[in-house]
């Protein structure tokens, strides 16, 4: 096991973190560097397909056991419980209204697939294996937090509502369909299928991830620049503390599930990350009273960079201790 500072130093100087930093710098310095919407969408489609496919192929190679179902249940439970913890912390640490706190809490219960993808790339560079089905766990953890957040908002007296159409949009949003679909294709076609498209989804993966993170840096920087007013010291502290709390909640769960060091690290990453795709869209529809600049700034502007630069190395180092590597 390596010391946390050493893993952090390696991580901070990796192409993916530096690409994000470049985007963040360019945006904060008001450069006109930008990634067109369609290009960003194409990059995200590629990343989701590649990570889903590789996860499915890994499951096909190593076989399935009861741990997949147990991990899915655990992931759903974590996603549902974490918003309540986040809500309590937000009410204690910030002056956010109950509605804004509920919306932010929902984001922290759900997951950031890009943080997950970045973590898998860092695990791969350190030759740490993980359970391929963690991709399915990631997909399962997207939605339960939304229910928890809307329950919290309803308790606060708002007219938050989750209709059938919204359910359909959340459960069948493009990211989840592509991730699970590619996972199934990978599981069905296995090693043979992976070999056929390896040159497309394995070798260019990190390069594409770098470009995508450049865009994430630009978006995060733009959000930070435009929403400085919502970043009170308490809210900022929450956005840094909450990922650590989420990861700490996932650690004993991963140990109980018997996950490998890589799987433990990924469950911690999923619990530590905050959504900026599925949950914001759901909140805009179901809870329009909540201020979007608060939850997007905290999730994308603070927690995402924190996890990418510092969080992931911490989770990997702790997972290696638990996983006994």
């Amino acid at each position: 096991m390596e010391a946390i500072p050493s893993i952090m130093a390696q991580n901070l100087l990796s192409p993916i973190v530096l690409s994000f930093a470049l985007g963040l710098f360019a945006s904060l310095a008001r450069s006109n560097l930008s990634v067109p919407e369609a290009a960003a969408k194409a990059l995200s489609l590629y990343l989701l397909f590649a990570i889903g496919f590789k996860g499915g192929a890994s499951v096909a190679a190593h076989g399935l056991d009861g741990s997949l179902a147990a991990s899915l249940v655990a992931g759903v439970a974590l996603s549902f419980v974490i918003p309540f913890v986040a809500f309590g912390l937000l009410r204690a640490m910030t002056r956010l209204s109950a509605v804004d706190a509920a919306a932010v809490a929902g984001h922290y219960g759900s997951i950031s697939i890009v943080t997950f993808v970045s973590a898998t790339a860092i695990l791969a560079s350190r030759a740490i294996d993980y359970e391929g089905y963690m991709v399915a766990v990631a997909a399962a953890m997207e939605a339960p937090a939304i229910i928890a957040a809307l329950w919290l908002a309803t308790r606060a007296g708002t007219g938050a509502r989750m209709d059938r159409e919204l359910w359909r949009e959340v459960l069948l949003n493009g990211s989840i369909v592509l991730l699970i679909g590619a996972f199934m294709i990978g599981a069905i076609t296995g090693e043979r299928g992976l070999k056929e498209i390896e040159s497309f989804i394995v070798s260019p993966f990190k390069g594409v991830l770098c470009l995508f993170l450049l865009d994430m840096g630009l978006v995060a920087g733009r959000g930070l620049r435009q929403a400085r007013s919502v970043l009170s010291p308490g809210a900022f502290a929450f956005a840094v503390l909450m990922p650590l709390v989420g990861a700490a909640l996932a650690m004993p769960v991963a140990a109980a599930l018997g996950l490998s060091a890589g799987g433990t690290a990924l469950l911690m990453v999923l619990s530590a990350s905050a959504s900026y795709i599925a949950v914001p869209a759901a909140m805009r529809v179901a809870l329009p009273e909540a201020n979007p600049s608060i939850y997007l700034t905290l999730s994308l502007g603070v927690t995402f960079p924190f996890n990418l630069a510092l969080g992931i190395p911490i989770y990997i180092a702790l997972a290696e201790i638990i996983g006994g590597v």
């Binding site: 919407e37 290009a39 994430m216 900026y276 795709i277 914001p280 869209a281 979007p292 600049s293 994308l300």
Partner: peptide, 15 residues
């Protein structure tokens, strides 16, 4: 009233 926004490079349609 809700601030500035742009569709460039949006990672999510939410904004």
């Amino acid at each position: 009233r809700s601030g500035r926004w742009s569709r460039e490079g949006q990672v999510s349609a939410a904004g």
